[in-house]
Design a protein around this nucleic acid. Structure first.
Length: 410
RNA sequence: CGGGGGGUAGCGCAGUUUGGCUAGCGCACUUGCUUUGGGAGCAAGGGGCCGUGGGUUCAAAUCCCACCCUCCCGACCA
């Protein structure tokens, strides 16, 4: 991809509308466009990151046997009346009427709708268990949207729902999801931890939150610096009796054992082996997809710009062409690497070198390659690792191996 | 919803206190020449309903009233 032909429009100045670090960088580096407070469009760079996040989530969900579907964003209020959550979520629902005066909302979440779908088709224990999931936009009219994508009125979420006959089967699904979540969050390369949480208005018996420490976190937990354990209440560490320190955290995932709250309220029953009518036992499992984008931006940057982990970077490398006569050479290097599935942003713009370096750092692809004067003399590509600043000189015919090594591809 | 900042060119800002004549600066943009490995130089250009609506005045970006948008703190946060 040529930078000169791309829709990447970085800004030299810090954006005025942003205060926190990650939000500033995402706007400045042109990953996001702010439509309104708490409402954002994803520009090509941001969308590439989101796409990679989604692919990681999809692949792990599919591995544990969850099936993807895609529900409507527009939902009739009637289904919310069945569970009484039309009242619980009244404040945050975007509501409207259609031409026939029927009331609708833009879905703030999808428990009610998935339950409606499932009950229509499921009537026997033989059809259980299963897990359905989607990656979709949710709408919540937040009293105060904040920190860019961190708390926004329109955001992307992966929500999965499990349906089973027995409590034991719910436990099994819950454990599977719990493990899948660990694998997923490991891939995003941030320091997360898992905390037992209050199910709140979601209902159910238990839940776990996946938390990432960050300055702009809206929750506070207490952690022991020695044992690295987190507690909900301020108090001495239960293991070593040290004083705990408060830490702000961001919730990026939350899994719930819902039980039968929705199935009973909405009439989602099946017959068991004995022909008895049983409510479906449900679990739900959420990941804040767009929130992950901002959580990574917030926690992974330096004074020069963003630093994306390899797994979700918009491109694997930015290739700076500092000598115009080498553009063909750049294309040939890109071709070599694309054959190995590495994506390259070739900065072929006529701008001064400084502009290119600064944009490469700002955008934060994991590697910066340079071909210019030195390349003509030595036939070696300079490679800088964004995260560590380490520099390498790699011959063109070795560049493929260099990347395969760096990405641990055998 | 309470408190506090702010809204002037695509972006970032000055000007508002003390009203005044064609509303400025930097970046970006267009054209030409030069430069070419770390946010280039010279020259010539284009781009504004000064957030919106009322009011005061000979005259309003500037004063008064109302509203809207936005950022931060708080309340709220399935």
């Amino acid at each position: 991809m040529f930078y000169s032909k791309s829709f990447i429009n970085t800004s030299r100045e810090d954006p005025k509308v942003a205060e926190c670090r990650g939000h500033k960088l995402l706007l400045k580096a042109n990953f996001l466009y702010m439509v309104s407070s708490g409402i954002y469009s994803y520009l090509p760079l941001g969308w590439r990151v989101l796409d990679k996040i989604n692919k990681i989530i999809r692949s792990e969900m599919n591995l544990v046997g969850a099936q993807e579907l895609f529900m409507s964003a527009v939902q009739p209020i009637d289904i919310w009346k069945k569970t009484g959550r039309d009242k619980d979520l009244e404040e945050v629902m975007f509501k409207f009427k259609d031409r026939k005066s029927r009331e609708f909302c833009l879905g703030p979440t999808h428990e009610e709708e998935i339950t409606e779908i499932v009950k229509r088709y499921i009537s026997s224990y033989k059809q259980l268990p299963f897990v359905l999931y989607q990656i979709q936009t949710k709408f919540r009219d937040e009293p105060r949207p904040r920190f860019g994508l961190m708390r926004s009125s329109e955001f992307i979420m992966k929500d999965a729902y499990s349906f089973s006959l027995t409590q034991q089967c719910l436990e099994d699904n819950y454990q599977k999801m719990y493990k899948a979540y660990q694998i997923i969050f490991d891939k995003f390369k941030f320091n997360y931890f898992i905390s037992e949480a209050d199910p709140g208005a979601m209902g159910g018996s238990a839940s776990h939150e996946f938390m990432v420490p960050a300055e702009i976190g809206e929750d506070v937990l207490y952690f022991c610096p020695k044992c690295k354990k987190y507690y909900k209440e301020e108090g001495k560490c239960l293991v070593c009796q040290c004083e705990t320190k408060s830490e702000k955290v961001v919730e990026v995932g939350h899994i719930f054992k819902l039980g039968t709250k929705y199935s009973k309220a909405q009439g989602a029953f099946v017959l068991d082996q004995q022909g008895r009518r049983k409510p479906l036992i449900m679990g739900c499992y959420g990941i804040g997809v767009s929130r992950i984008l901002s959580a990574v931006a917030e926690t992974s940057s330096d004074s020069k710009g963003l630093i994306w982990p390899k797994t979700i970077a918009p491109f694997d490398a930015t290739l700076l062409v500092l000598d115009k006569s080498q553009t063909q050479e750049a294309l040939s290097i890109e071709a070599l690497l694309e054959k190995e599935c590495f994506s390259i942003l070739i900065d072929d713009r006529k701008s001064p070198a400084g502009v290119k370096f600064n944009d490469a750092y700002l955008i934060g692809n994991p590697y910066i390659m340079i071909i210019g004067k030195n390349y003509r003399e030595s036939a070696k590509i300079e490679v800088e690792k964004r995260e560590t600043g380490q520099k390498f000189e790699i011959a063109k015919d070795k560049i493929k191996d260099f990347f395969r090594d760096e990405y641990n591809i055998k």
